[in-house]
């Protein structure tokens, strides 16, 4: 033990600053301890050791997904805005605008291809911008075939190449690479040379991706459309304005609609008050009658607005909650 101490002292002699420091610490032991503790607390608080440890296994390299937009099978239940799917061009545009974050939806799609041949390294955003070119052209937009669009794009590129100075080798090279990439794109889309399948119009419609909540896009029916519906229903509603207690009546009616906008069923929800209050019952029945009267107007029925403009988001309007409030400036 003595030997060890001697050795230490000898060693410290060679490093006078360390020796001095040790002596200093020994002379001012309480203060030194305090400084040490403070420092360690500060270090523990600023450096998050725990999360450093936890993060390590979480780092996983995720392979890039490329979604074949033409094969995405999309169900009735949707969380996509309904307005974007009126024509074929728009139908394609609708999922496209969103596909940068496609990976979030990827598990819903049935025909997803993982990593197209020519696109292993290309970011999906670039892939999409390439594809969007034919859509911008008016004639391509009407065509349902990507093939033709691609061919056209190629033609236009070729002609521009011919129009250029001399068609030098360098130009040719870049053109070949472009051709190759287009071929790759075709392959990745899975329709290199085969003709596009003739789908019936209904099935071509992509009205959103299955699994959505369906609720948040209710607001897509604009306020003015809601007002219009309310006004049209009001026109069908004939009610005795002198009924007792009209001041505090609110009739809630649930309507079930068919896909073509006809009324399947109507139910008055305020059943309790219906039984108690004869005046309320009379007003509630008049409101229910209003729904039927509107429905019997056939093509003029206000509910036809839905299949006309929101054909593809049936689940958002297959049931409606109508709130009839008899009190208005016009009556009572």
């Amino acid at each position: 033990m003595k030997k060890l101490r001697l050795m230490l002292l000898l060693y410290l002699r060679r490093l006078p600053w360390l020796f001095k420091t040790v002596v200093f610490v020994r002379d001012h032991l309480p203060m030194s301890l305090s400084v040490f503790l403070h420092l360690s607390v500060i270090i523990f608080l600023t450096v998050d050791f725990a999360s450093r440890e936890a993060k390590k296994p979480a780092v996983v390299s995720v392979p890039m997904f490329v979604v074949d937009l033409n094969k995405v099978k999309i169900g009735d239940v949707t969380n996509l805005p309904p307005k974007l799917v009126e024509s074929w061009g728009a139908k394609k545009a609708a999922p496209k605008s969103r596909s940068v974050r496609t990976s979030a939806y990827s598990k819903a799609g049935t025909g997803l291809s993982r990593g197209g041949a020519g696109f292993e390294s290309a970011p999906s955003g670039a892939h999409l911008s390439t594809e969007s070119k034919p859509i911008e052209k008016p004639d391509a937009a009407t065509s349902a075939e990507t093939d033709k669009a691609v061919a056209k794009m190629l033609n236009s590129l070729k002609s521009s190449g011919k129009g250029g100075a001399d068609g030098s080798a360098k130009d040719d090279d870049s053109f070949k690479t472009l051709l190759a990439s287009v071929d790759g794109m075709k392959k990745s889309l899975g329709r290199a040379d085969e003709p596009p399948p003739d789908l019936p119009e209904d099935e071509m419609v992509t009205d959103g991706i299955e699994g959505g909540d369906g609720g948040s896009y209710m607001q897509d029916l604009s306020v003015s459309e809601k007002d219009l519906l309310g006004l049209r229903l009001r026109g069908c509603w004939n009610m005795d304005a002198g009924v007792r207690g009209i001041k505090d009546m609110l009739i809630e009616i649930r309507v079930w609609l068919d896909r073509d906008g006809t009324v399947k069923d109507v139910k008055i929800l305020n059943t309790g008050r219906m039984k108690r209050d004869a005046a309320f019952k009379s007003v509630a029945e008049s409101a229910r009658r209003a729904v039927y009267v509107c429905d019997k107007k056939k093509e003029d029925s206000p509910f036809k607005l839905f299949p006309k403009h929101y054909k593809d988001t049936y689940d958002t309007w297959k049931t409606l909650l109508l709130r009839f409030n008899p009190m208005d400036g016009g009556v009572g």
Binding site: D213, G214, G215, M218, L221, K226, L229, G230, L233, R234, G235, W237, N238, M239, D240, A241, R254, S286, A287, A290, T316, W317, T319, L320, L321, L322, R323, F324, N325, P326, M327, D328, G329, G330, V331
Partner: peptide
């Protein structure tokens, strides 16, 4: 449920003989 359903308000009615 109320949130998930499209609701429409109708205020006032015609008041005509039935």
């Amino acid at each position: 449920q109320a949130k998930a359903e499209l609701s429409i308000d109708i205020t006032g009615a015609r008041s005509e003989p039935m």
